[in-house]
Design a protein around this nucleic acid. Structure first.
Lengths: 354, 354
DNA sequence: AGCGGAATTTGGATCGTTCCAAGTCGAAAA
DNA sequence: TTTTCGACTTGGAACGATCCAAATTCCGCT
């Protein structure tokens, strides 16, 4: 009874352990041991199996393995705005570190919508990630997040706090920027240049990061004994367009400021645009600082003094922190504050000689 | 015999179908039918099961389901440079479209390294993605990619061609930008402003997109009967820093150009920086065009004339194309060329009056 | 009461891997 | 020769879902 053994298996069927086992006449268990470099298998057997693996073009099925081992090898990364270069760099950093540790990144972007955030989290959870890194959408609420994420999956919060009370028993770690100190550094820098009438420009009071930055500004002003006028605090959406539009508000009232600490770089760039339009030259007639040090900051005219948050390094750090948590699920929740660094460029200047 | 039924299951065990089934006294099969909205189950039973699902906080295990059904619900997205806003936007578009179709995005970024690309592809494949979207690293070779990806998993190539012959039987679709036409449009635009000595600046000869853009430039120059000097072609890495550094090379030799068609926006922005540093004002003394229309292009000083590639829409399109392929694995490979649109801004100007 | 058929429900096999307890085998020890 | 031991190897039961064929229940009708 002859039999044409089809040694080239049908092109569109997944090759499994059983195929390899059959192909070199050992058991599935042995092949599995080979795959995992177990010292148990005999050298010769190992060689035979390895050759067969190559011959058939075997691809490991991690999902099946994870199912059996009750483990996971993925981490979910949920971002409020992937299109923002700051978060894109962050994502690159996360992926870099996770990849190095053998994890795969499940991506989800929410476009700053709380509803999508819910949906995305739910969908990613079905893939059983070992952990989650979340930069929440504006207005995302702790209780809702807890309800969908549950308590089985460690969560690392990046960049923003959630609204409402953090559930006391949820082991959520956080990685935040040192907003207050950053804004204080910027303000102190302007003061050291001789500035006295300094405004705080942009952002919304409701945002935790804006509150913190404003607090840093106030701290520096008070430490220097400088007065703060109420009309030196201008709110606007954290983007260029709105910032440019609100520029005029700085000069409605006297005494007008001669410098502004801006909520972030986008706002600062918008403000500079607005200043140009009213004939005020930023970096000469009016000093401006930003926050983030996005790539454009170095290339604007004039280049922007700002605070570097090194998003790629933050991404790596976020990944590290989460991996740490996975190693020790019982450790108590950590709150990490990443330092920011003042980068002095030409947009900050002394006040015009009176 | 009393028995404390622990109705709140141990916090750290995954809830499975069996738990739900036991909890409301039906079989696993029935619960499964409920989960999948089968019309077979009785209304009352369904209600009972659904309540139990909520009560126990059940989370679907898609990996297990995929294993049994021999399906996959993820797509791998492998990018050569996530930190580039162009690709970040692209990724956002991909994720948006995939999420809408019920797929999850497995992210991998290669940092423009062929070795990492291999590693990342290998690792992602173990997670059995339904398909792959790949924007290859510079120098990535078709044969190597085929060897690791195999023929089971559909691949969509974005943005760049692979080096070497595409394997004839691999059903790889492509989505490319209309590089040649784009560069031609930019060049024609400069010519229509009266420019005659136009350089082609940036990128590497080895990259397919760079070749195509250069070809478009040559095409326009020749059509206008304008000469091209060899020293008007300056190579540099496609980033700002290197572009700024190479700026001087434009003026080593005579006749010096009075305009440059740049490989992309990053290069164009870097070039403008370099020009400023040598006292040449882009948009007045020297015309510059870019490619991509990244967000910064509209906001640089002067705003950059460039070609809009609408990366977010490209991302959605890439996802659509791949989904189409999944629906019909046999269809013959498609090559799609996405149009680009000339956006005229202030960086392009007539040559200075001689 | 008994029957046929629709409506529901269900046990068990299965997806591709890992774990585990138990097996084989050859050589050294008794 | 038998026993023992270390070095390998292996069958079968998991993991958590789905599929399928068969079983059960429920009804209306003779």
């Amino acid at each position: 009874m002859s039999m044409a053994t089809d040694s080239t298996p049908h092109a569109n069927r997944r090759i499994t352990l059983a195929d390899i086992a059959a192909g070199c006449d050992v058991s599935r268990a042995t092949v599995s041991l080979v795959l995992r470099d177990s010292p148990l298998v005999n050298k010769l057997t190992r060689a035979r199996v390895e050759q067969e693996l190559r011959r058939q073009g075997y691809v490991y099925n991690r999902a099946a393995a994870n199912l059996r081992r009750r483990t996971s090898s993925s981490i979910a990364l949920v971002l409020n705005d992937l299109a923002n270069p700051f978060f894109a760099e962050f994502a690159a950093g996360v992926d870099e570190a996770l990849g190095g540790a053998g994890y795969v990144t499940l991506l989800g972007s929410t476009g700053e919508s709380v509803a999508r955030e819910q949906a995305v989290l739910g969908s990613l959870l079905e893939h059983d990630p070992a952990g989650i890194i979340l930069s929440p959408a504006e207005g995302s609420v702790a209780a809702r997040v807890l309800a969908t994420v549950g308590m089985r999956t460690p969560l690392l919060l990046f960049n923003r706090e959630l609204a409402g009370e953090a559930p006391p028993d949820a082991p959520w770690d956080r990685l935040m920027l040192d907003n207050q100190r950053g804004a204080r550094l910027a303000t102190e820098h302007l003061i050291s240049l001789g500035q006295q009438r300094i405004a705080f420009f942009g952002g919304h009071q409701s945002s935790s990061s804006c509150q913190q930055r404003h607090a840093g500004y106030v701290e520096a002003m008070q430490a220097a004994g400088l007065p703060i006028e109420p009309h030196w605090r201008i709110e606007c959406a954290p983007n260029r367009v709105d910032a440019a539009a609100q520029c005029g508000a700085l000069f409605f009232d006297t005494p007008a400021p001669t410098a502004a600490v801006c909520y972030n770089d986008a706002v600062a760039l918008g403000l500079m645009l607005g200043l140009y339009q009213r004939g005020v030259r930023p970096g000469r007639d009016f000093a401006v600082t930003g926050f983030d040090d996005i790539a454009e900051a170095a290339l604007s005219a004039p280049p922007l003094t700002t605070l570097a948050a090194t998003p790629r390094a933050r991404g790596r750090q976020a990944a590290e922190l989460l991996l740490l948590r996975l190693r020790d699920p019982q450790a108590k929740p950590q709150r990490t504050v990443a330092p920011v660094q003042l980068v002095v460029r030409a947009s900050s200047c002394p006040p015009p000689a009176a």
